[in-house]
Write a protein that binds this DNA or RNA. Structure first.
Lengths: 204, 204
DNA sequence: GAACACATCCCTTAAAAACAGGATTTTTAA
DNA sequence: TTAAAAATCCTGTTTTTAAGGGATGTGTTC
């Protein structure tokens, strides 16, 4: 059985590398590649591969959003997330959005092949390092509301509660409440930790 | 004239990609690769290539430090920085430490070849995007002192001046002074902006 | 229609950070 | 050796946050 593999990544070197790693595999067919979300969707409109290797960081859209979109339109296509970072929030979000696996870019050929073969049968593949990460961290991918994200962004800009209140046409006490909730949600002691954790978890 | 190229990168996919991109070039000789700083240095102890493509993020040491070390020991080897990020601070530091060029991982084969050929003759190569970045930003790669970095890290951990003071066996007012200087150096209005800018500039 | 999440608003008090303006000693580098 | 940079400490004041407590209106969902 031949598995058709498509790649979405904005780095030529990575695309070339994967092609090179897969070119001698007999049961892998190279379906092509895209360097952004738009051309990936355009391709899928024409034909569907069995497996998509999808980078998290794309120029026009995050891989996390693209993953969701692709899975909604083409549920039979299996997706493997691909990224440099072993960051919990991203892995979690990709899986939540329907990805069947997650592989880091330092994966060996064996790992990559194992991932593709596992995923092609409908199972889930996580590399050793990735499943370690998922285990070790307290599953703390926090969900922020629209307003909380807005406030968080303005805090990160260096604005005070007063300034944020004026900008958003709400009371200072409301901003303070949002701030309180942000600290609690992210389990941060103060502003400094809040910003650091927010960036680490991809909220900023 | 044949240029011997060596690569240091901890991602197999990238190494494979570059090898694939260069394998048909007649005046490029593949000298080998290393996936960390230690084995790069071990290789150089035996023989020296003409050009090293060096990733910024290595498992055992930052490419920035490795660049400096290599240039001190083997000044005749030309180094091209390689990374995913178009971050001013990294580019600046690589150049300061003796790198002759900087290429992003989404470079095309043409760009890569141009970079290698330019650098091999002793000139400096910066890709279009990179030189744009260097131009657009106010050369604000701030230099922090050892103590300032220490304090900054503890601030980011969520510690108060008081706690930092106790931890470092100094007075709270001293911590406050360092904090003042950090805000001024990074041109931040308050803690929130300080942390954001620090992460953006690679201090955290 | 009850339960729930969200966004909004208010009060109080204490702690922390920002701002202003110094000063001294130790290290480092020219 | 001498000047500059770094690290240390001080006294104030003002502004901002944190932490505690609540309350109300508006949707959505079960």
């Amino acid at each position: 059985m031949v598995t058709k593999v498509f790649i979405v990544d904005d780095h030529y070197m990575v695309i070339e590398g994967i092609r090179s790693l897969l070119q001698n595999e007999k049961n892998i067919e190279w379906a092509g590649h895209a360097s952004n979300a738009a051309s990936c969707l355009a391709y899928l409109h024409q034909q569907q591969p069995d497996v998509i290797l999808m980078d998290i960081n794309l120029p026009d859209k995050s891989g996390i959003d693209l993953c969701k979109e692709v899975k909604e339109k083409y549920p039979s296509v299996f997706i493997i997330g691909l990224s440099t970072f072993n960051q919990l929030s991203f892995i979690q979000k990709m899986i939540d959005n329907g990805a069947s696996g997650y592989v880091l870019k330092n994966a060996t050929q064996q790992e990559l092949m194992e991932a593709i073969e596992t995923v092609a049968t409908g199972k889930t593949y996580l590399s050793f390092e990735v499943s370690q990460t998922l285990r070790n961290t307290n599953n703390s991918t926090v969900v922020l509301t629209r307003r909380e994200k807005e406030v968080l962004n303005l805090i990160a800009e260096g604005m005070t509660n007063n300034e944020i209140a004026k900008k958003l046409f709400i009371s200072t006490t409301t901003v303070d409440t949002h701030r309180k909730n942000l600290l609690e949600k992210l389990n941060a002691r103060n502003t400094a930790a809040l910003i650091k954790l927010s960036i680490a978890q991809g909220h900023l």
